[in-house]
Structures are given as structure tokens and as C-alpha cells.
């Protein structure tokens, strides 16, 4: 699991590559805490190369969304694949995020 950051004045771009499974979620939780500090802006989570998301990964997304909502920012989830879309829908969390193709 790798994370790529690009920061501009308006938004924080976060490119996620690989499988965000339980072990990976534990590894990157520190990085997500760092991302949460930018929650007053737009955070783009680019999932073009994200293959899988576990519950732990979902929790990271949900925590980020909660932070953004409290700080007046927003989280855009970009280009999720069908199986991740299915996880978001099945669990009932899909409508919480701004999904982008």
C-alpha cells in the first residue's frame, strides 16, 4: 500500500495504490492523521489504483469525513472500482461521500 501526496492551496490530493486491508490500514493510520490536519480544505482521495478496502480502511475514510465535516472542508472520493463501490453501498456509507469519476 503506497500513498502519494500533492498539496496545493485549495486541496490536498492523496493517491492511494494497492490494498487497504487491515494490516495496511494500521500502517497508514499515522498518514491519515496527518491528512486529517488538512480537513478544513478539500481532500481528494484518488482511488484509481486502490484494489480493495477493508473495514479498517472504511474507518479511516469515515474518520476523515467526520473531521472535514467539523472543520468545514470536504472529502472527495475519486474513481473507486466496482467492488469498493459495492462495499460502500452495502454498508450504507456511500451517500456520506462525494463520489467522483
Amino acid at each position: 500500500m503506497t500513498i502519494e501526496f500533492k498539496e496545493s492551496e485549495k486541496e490536498l490530493y492523496v493517491g492511494l495504490t494497492g490494498r487497504l486491508d487491515t494490516a495496511a490500514a494500521a500502517e497508514v493510520s499515522g498518514e491519515f492523521e496527518r491528512i486529517a490536519k488538512s480537513a478544513d480544505r478539500t481532500i481528494v482521495l484518488d482511488c484509481t489504483n486502490l484494489e480493495y478496502i477493508s473495514s479498517s480502511g472504511l474507518r479511516l475514510f469515515l474518520t476523515l469525513r467526520k473531521e472535514a465535516s467539523a472543520k468545514g472542508g470536504k472529502v472527495i472520493v475519486r474513481k473507486i472500482n466496482d467492488s469498493i463501490r459495492n462495499v460502500f453501498t452495502m454498508t450504507g456509507f456511500y451517500s456520506l461521500f462525494e463520489m467522483e469519476d
Binding site: 487491515t22 477493508s54 473495514s55 472504511l58 474507518r59 469515515l62 462495499v87 452495502m90 454498508t91 450504507g92 456509507f93
Partner: peptide
């Protein structure tokens, strides 16, 4: 059928009505 063979252990409260 949706969940039994997954490790999903977080759900929205709306999942029942959905």
C-alpha cells in the same frame, strides 16, 4: 449473503431499511 464471507465489521444504521 452479502456479509457472511466478508470481514466487514462496520455498518450504517440504515442498512436494515436499505
Amino acid at each position: 449473503n452479502q456479509l457472511a464471507d466478508t470481514d466487514i465489521d462496520i455498518l450504517a444504521s440504515t442498512v436494515s431499511l436499505q
